[in-house]
Design a protein around this nucleic acid. Structure first.
Lengths: 216, 216
DNA sequence: CAGACTCGTCAACACTTGTTCACTAAAAAA
DNA sequence: TTTTTTAGTGAACAAGTGTTGACGAGTCTG
């Protein structure tokens, strides 16, 4: 009888320990606790490797965390770019955008859970890194909006405000989505419908906005 | 030379240890880490009391957490009720409401930090408790809105959707506020201004909403 | 005043944590 | 092939963890 690890993950082949560690950490984030509450030892244990092997790949846990963070956002960024360069946004495309976004969330549940939990509870370094990424999305969205003819009369500051409103809300809905069980498809559908309505409502508000009134 | 605790808090008078423990935990949440990452021993240490004394007041850390959660929301709830029964909301009162709310956040920074960090990273019990409270606020807001004449044509489901939009956004702005340094008053002012604009934009959108269209 | 009970202390336990160092099997480079 | 580098193991450490039980000072109650 060969030695077995308690968890499902087998001993990684030589040279794949790094990936095994990252996968193990993500798995623990889904099943157990936020990343910042994980211990080096339990990650290595789940990865099927001895604790000291960790140091061959990362100087400490926070380095693993930052790597995971990078991995989480890199694929998300490229997806966003695809969505952005489709067509000019209008009322009808809201549904489609939300749908592809939430599908992406579903397919990358572990990464989103990782980010969501660290956004508030992580180390200052981690929190700042995440907030920077989110701010970047907000900026890009504002720049996209600046290209719409019917938003010509809105100044830059207010565009930022509008984009922030959208991003804030999508972020909140994402967390709501992550709280649902993976199998709860009707719940997920409800969130999607709510999301679409809320964005449409914002769309209406944006249409009525005048920057030149009593706005600073 | 008498024995001194390393932290500022002196040894609590007999019979006040419970309060000292709660205060110590809250303090550590502000200065160190989310509540779920605190150890029983460091809380008692900061409270100026021996670890075993903890058990005279709480069965375990999670009980302390739930007590803290209760304390956090009880005063918030009563403040909300005050605000709610002022006047009928209109465009002009948005500013005032946001101002009093954010003042309250500033004056209860520790409690809000505690809640914000546990909302995503806490135990399932804790997360559910917090989400239940937030959902309660959303419901109350939706009920308030139902009383406005100009919202008669909006059905219950859509009112919920609108209230959710407001609450989502205020929640996000609160977290943004908490990230700022306590002394950064200009930053806080900016968030307040953004908040008011965003709510006014939502207000516009609400005014244009028709529930009877193609909305489920 | 005497007894009971409340609420804190102290010592000890079994266990987990991060990190060190020396060692070796396997792969890469010479 | 021989040599060197890489990537894993295993034992050991000091420190911190939750929880136990017996004990005693202070306070309340009779």
């Amino acid at each position: 009888m060969t030695k077995e690890t308690t968890s499902r993950s087998r001993k990684p082949k030589r040279g794949q320990t790094r990936e095994a560690l990252m996968a193990a950490a993500l798995d623990l984030v889904v099943k157990k606790a936020p990343f910042s509450a994980l211990s080096l030892r339990e990650v290595t244990k789940k990865a099927g490797v001895v604790p000291t092997a960790f140091y061959r790949h990362f100087p400490d846990m926070s380095a693993l965390g930052l790597t995971l963070l990078d991995e989480s956002f890199r694929t998300l960024r490229q997806m966003m770019r695809q969505v952005r360069q489709q067509e000019l946004p209008n009322e009808r495309m809201l549904r489609g955008s939300m749908e592809t976004y939430f599908n992406y969330v579903r397919d990358n549940r572990a990464h989103f859970l990782f980010v969501a939990k660290e956004l508030a509870g992580g180390t200052p370094t981690m929190r700042n890194a995440i907030r920077r990424e989110i701010r970047m999305f907000t900026n890009e969205l504002a720049m996209d909006m600046a290209r719409f003819p019917f938003l010509n009369h809105v100044n830059a500051e207010d565009l930022q405000m509008m984009a922030g409103l959208v991003v804030n809300n999508v972020t909140a809905l994402t967390q709501e989505m992550l709280e649902l069980e993976e199998i709860d498809e009707t719940g997920q559908q409800e969130v999607l419908i709510t999301a679409e309505k809320q964005l449409r409502l914002i769309y209406f508000g944006v249409g009525m906005w005048r920057s030149d009134k009593s706005n600073a």
